[in-house]
Every structure is written in structure tokens, then in C-alpha cells.
Design a protein around this nucleic acid. Structure first.
Length: 248
DNA sequence: CAAGACAGCAAAGCGTTGTG
DNA sequence: CACAACGCTTTGCTGTCTTG
């Protein structure tokens, strides 16, 4: 996992709870977080502390190294105040910080991230209800919403070929409840770009239809399949992979 | 009329270039 | 490596037309 040039098989694994939680991250913050998560062995407890070099970050997301410094510095700075909101059945909302410490080592182009203790249950010791995917599939997505939607669909892809989600829940997940009061805007700015990016860069092929009540859109039904070509790539059944490989 | 579609404006974000 | 500046993209909103 240390080799910068070999990110092809890095997997991001997180609990489905986290996949569906409400949070906002800029693209760079999202990239930084996912890069760190990809280095975690989700089956085990772990050190909480992950280091990211500009070179490794640039390699993972196909940027020129010299451009990665400021992206990392900026993302690190902003990550400090970011939080994850988990909504419970009874309406309770629990907020948790992503990081308890995040420092950019100026002069060395290196970030050290300490995940907060409260976020760890979403990332480690996972053996059920989790989602796993290859980091490389989202590495070319340029909309943070595209990444969120990809993860959301990915959690269902083994179980079914479509999922219906209410517009309210969906916007809540993306922390857009108070924005995009007009569906057309949400569609044009979020849905269409996200699905387009997912279809052209990831292993999922997605389409969607709106569900209406009267004339208002109340839900979205996503339909998806795994792309046939990508299927031939070394994408082992996730559960087996996690249970068996290098466990000892 | 209410809600969606479409066009366009503006701010923020992202990637690049040039400079030191 | 850092910083300033530029240009393209992403994101959020408004005006206006279209539709059932």
C-alpha cells in the first residue's frame, strides 16, 4: 500500500451508514479523505493517523505533483471544520468530526491526518453493511456530488439493479436540503453531471427516472448495472476479498 | 396556476502557468 | 515548494417561457 505508483487496487471501504450520512466536502477534501480511507485496512482497528504526500496524492488523481501542494494545504485547512451528520430513526441527529487533527507540513508537501475516534466505527472493523470500491474509479470524477452518488449506488449494486430514493432524503444526504428549491436546477447541476461522470469514468452504468406525485418530483429511481468491460478487471467479489486476502 | 425546462449571471472551486 | 494570477468548471440562483 505504500507504493505511490500502484494505486490501481486501492479500495475505499466505508460503512453504509457513512455512505448515506449527510456531509459536505469540496472535491479536494473528498479526494484527501478517500485517499486516506483507501489506506485503511477496514477489517482491523488502525492507527488513526495517515500521511499523504503531494506526490502520492497527485499520482492517485492524475495531477502534476507541483500542483498538489496547494490543493492539499487548502483541503487540510478546511477539513478541520467538516462534520458528518448521522440521522436516526427517531429523528435524532448526531454530528461527528472527520478529523481530530490535520496538519500540513509546510516545506515537505505532506499532510498528516488523524481521523477522529468517533469516525473510526464507520471505517474500521467492518464485516457487514459496508461498501467497497476501487479508488481509481472515482479518481477522475470532478464533482464531489458525483462521488457521493457513485458511493450511494455502489452500496446496492450487488443486491439489486435499481433503487428508489425520495428527493428529500437524497438532498439531505448531500446537505442540499435548503438549496435547489427548483427541481430543474437540481437536475441540471447535480443529477445530470453526476450520472454523466459516473457513466464515463466508473464501473457503473446508471440511468434514472423521476417519480412524481401530482406534478411534483418526490423521488428518483436509479437503475444501474456494472459495466461489462470493467468487470473483467481485477475486481474480486468484495466480501471474499476482504475476508480472505492478506488477513494473516 | 403550479411546477418544470431552459438560458444566463455570478461566485466559488479547481487546474495550470509563471515567478522566485 | 510557495504564491499570484488566469481560465475553465462547478455550483447556486433568477428570469422567463412551457406545460398539464
Amino acid at each position: 500500500m505504500q507504493h505511490v505508483d500502484d494505486i490501481t487496487n486501492w479500495k475505499v471501504t466505508k460503512s453504509n451508514e457513512l455512505v448515506k450520512a449527510g456531509y459536505t466536502l469540496s472535491l479536494n477534501e473528498q479526494r484527501l479523505i478517500l485517499f486516506c480511507i483507501a489506506q485503511i485496512d477496514s477489517r482491523k482497528p488502525f492507527s488513526r493517523i495517515k500521511a499523504v504526500t503531494a506526490a502520492a496524492f497527485a499520482a492517485a488523481y492524475t495531477l502534476e505533483t507541483r500542483h498538489a501542494y496547494e490543493a492539499l494545504e487548502d483541503a487540510t485547512e478546511r477539513l478541520w471544520n467538516r462534520e458528518v451528520k448521522t440521522r436516526f430513526e427517531d429523528g435524532r441527529v448526531e454530528k461527528v468530526r472527520w478529523v481530530s487533527k490535520a496538519t500540513y507540513d509546510r516545506g515537505n508537501g505532506r499532510v498528516t491526518v488523524n481521523f477522529s475516534p468517533e469516525i473510526l466505527p464507520f471505517l474500521t472493523l467492518l464485516n457487514e453493511r459496508f461498501t467497497s470500491y476501487d479508488l481509481r474509479y472515482i479518481s477522475h470524477l470532478t464533482s464531489t456530488y458525483a462521488i457521493r452518488v457513485y458511493e450511494y449506488l455502489k452500496q446496492y449494486v450487488k443486491l439489486r439493479s435499481s433503487i428508489r430514493v425520495t428527493l428529500v432524503d437524497f438532498k439531505e444526504m448531500l446537505e442540499l436540503s435548503d438549496s435547489y428549491m427548483r427541481f430543474a436546477n437540481f437536475k441540471a447541476r447535480i443529477l445530470v453531471p453526476a450520472v454523466e461522470q459516473i457513466n464515463s469514468h466508473t464501473d457503473l452504468r446508471v440511468s434514472w427516472v423521476v417519480i412524481r406525485e401530482q406534478r411534483s418530483v418526490v423521488a428518483i429511481e436509479f437503475r444501474f448495472t456494472k459495466a461489462s468491460q470493467q468487470e473483467e478487471l481485477p475486481l474480486l467479489p468484495v466480501v471474499e476479498d476482504l475476508d480472505e486476502s492478506e488477513a494473516a
